Simulated scan of single mutants.
Amino acid sequence: MTVFTRKVLVVEDDQFMGSLISQALSNAGFETKHVISAVEAKRSIGALDPDIALIDIDLGDGPNGIDLVHMLLRIYPGVKLVILSTLADAKSAGLGALDVPAGVTYLRKSLIHDVNEFISTIELVIGDNNPEIRQDLEVARQFDGVSKVQREILHMMSLGLSNREIASRRKVSLSNIEQRLTEIYKALEIAKSEATVPRVEAILKYLSMTGTAKH
């Protein structure tokens, strides 16, 4: 009886993370190839003929992971595609949920901390009846009450910008930003308390929701 080895293309520009992902998959019996860019992925995929590709969003200079996913869907429709990112959702990369095509899986890299769960999820995706797993949409639901402008202000707050600097960059008054902050605290259900600082609580909640602490 012929035993087929399933093949995985790992597209990750961070060498350490790419090696970590590849090793976990190799230990589970997959044949893996790690490349660091969309260009290298295009060059390698034909020869490898993978069953599944795990693709980071931020691939440095050149096309990003979403660009690569769209290209692979057109040229290699038989390859299962997984976006694997530290970013909680595509909006955190300046993209929108609609930029992630239907049928493409979106996983957080934090899943790798539990190798067994990570491998089980990959097995589900690669299987005949794979479900559509979209961890990014879980984050989108958390932001249901937060407007686009409020989220932009939250991002600027997370970068350490003062209210005055945020107002200057958005070309609005300081009082406008202060009012926006009141709205943000309400949307995130952050109550005033002597034990907490609402601004800090909002930033921590934003970072937790988006996974952008290092971005």
Rank of each mutant, 00 (worst) to 15 (best):
D89S: 09
A93F: 13
E117D: 08
D61P: 05
I126K: 04
T121F: 05
V200L: 11
A167P: 12
A187C: 11
I122A: 06
V82L: 06
G60F: 14
K42M: 10
L174I: 15
K33M: 12
R169F: 09
A53N: 03
A97D: 12
H70Q: 07
L73D: 09
A88V: 02
K42F: 12
D13I: 07
V139W: 04
D58H: 07
I203D: 09
I75R: 06
L84D: 03
F16W: 08
L159H: 05
R6W: 14
D13L: 10
R74Y: 03
H155M: 12
V146L: 15
I133W: 01
P63W: 12
R151D: 12
I177P: 06
T210V: 11
Y185S: 03
K109R: 08
H215G: 14
Q135M: 14
R43I: 08
A191N: 08
N163Y: 15
A195M: 03
R134L: 08
S37F: 13
N27C: 14
N130F: 08
R74L: 11
Q179N: 06
I184C: 04
I190K: 03
G160V: 10
D99T: 11
N163S: 12
L59N: 09
T86S: 12
I119F: 01
Q15A: 15
V79E: 09
A202V: 14
A53D: 05
V146N: 09
K186H: 15
A140K: 05
Q135L: 07
E165C: 04
L68K: 02
N116W: 01
S173A: 13
K214V: 14
E194F: 07
T32I: 02
L68S: 06
G94P: 07
T2I: 15
I21F: 09
G211V: 11
E12L: 04
I75A: 07
A28L: 10
T196F: 03
R199Y: 14
G65I: 06
Q23A: 13
G18R: 04
P101A: 03
D56C: 10
I45G: 05
R169K: 05
G103E: 03
H155W: 13
N176E: 04
D128A: 13
L181P: 00
V200G: 05
I184G: 04
D114C: 01
Q15P: 06
L181F: 09
V197Y: 02
A41V: 10
S147V: 13
V8L: 06
G160F: 11
L207K: 02
R134Y: 06
T196G: 00
K33E: 04
F30I: 13
L54M: 02
V100W: 02
G103N: 00
D51N: 13
L107C: 03
A24N: 04
L207F: 13
G96V: 02
F16R: 00
V115C: 06
I126D: 10
V125D: 02
T196K: 00
K148L: 14
L204V: 05
N116G: 01
G46R: 01
I184M: 09
D114E: 01
D128R: 08
L98F: 09
T212I: 05
I166P: 05
